[in-house]
């Protein structure tokens, strides 16, 4: 019989398999904690951008419906592309900043099983998170450096000393919890 106290100790010491790790395919287990490659990261970015666009369209639709209540005779029209682009930019920046600072994952990161960490492997702080997301957005081509880099880092990662690592499970023992 294993007491709960003992179970937790064994789990912390890695003597028993983490229930959350069991579902990870055998082949991918060795890749956990390694920096991910270009395709994974690009797909995550694509998912995030898609999410942002969907959120923007839905928000605009709701806003238009609300305006319809105030001024009933208003013809629906899409906003100017530049405004749309600017709003999307700000939204994506805020979304990435908050996601990386709070959990290290945006929705795209979560689906692709990757996590943004600093040079120690910890979660980014808010300033670093904000800096990294704005840097990634004004210089998206920097992501391609992952292919060239010997350590799978983008230009942003190299300069800000961050990394994007595979972490397919939200583990019982959160690596971000600092004792």
């Amino acid at each position: 019989m294993t007491s709960f106290e003992k179970f937790r100790q064994q789990l912390a010491a890695g003597e028993v398999p983490n229930p959350a790790q069991v579902v990870i395919p055998e082949k991918a287990k060795s890749k956990q904690g390694h920096r991910s490659g270009i395709v994974t990261r690009a797909l995550a970015v694509a998912i995030d951008i898609s999410v942002t666009i969907v959120v923007m369209l839905v928000s605009y639709g709701l806003l238009w419906l609300f305006l319809l209540l105030i001024a009933p005779i208003k013809i629906f029209e899409m906003p100017e592309a530049s405004w749309f682009f600017l709003a999307g930019f700000v939204l994506l920046w805020a979304y990435c900043t908050a996601s990386w600072a709070l959990s290290g994952r945006t929705l795209g990161n979560h689906l692709m099983g990757i996590q943004v960490v600093d040079y120690k492997g910890n979660r980014l702080g808010w300033p670093l998170s904000a800096l990294r997301s704005i840097f990634s957005m004004v210089f998206p081509i920097g992501l391609l450096w992952v292919v060239v880099s010997p350590t799978n880092r983008s230009v942003q990662d190299t300069i800000l000393r961050t990394g994007v690592v595979h972490n397919w499970s939200v583990t019982l023992i959160d690596p971000f919890v600092k004792e």
Partner: peptide, 13 residues
Amino acid sequence: GRNSESPTSSDSA
């Protein structure tokens, strides 16, 4: 090849 290993917080701890 390349070294994609990244430090984890458990290592730094």
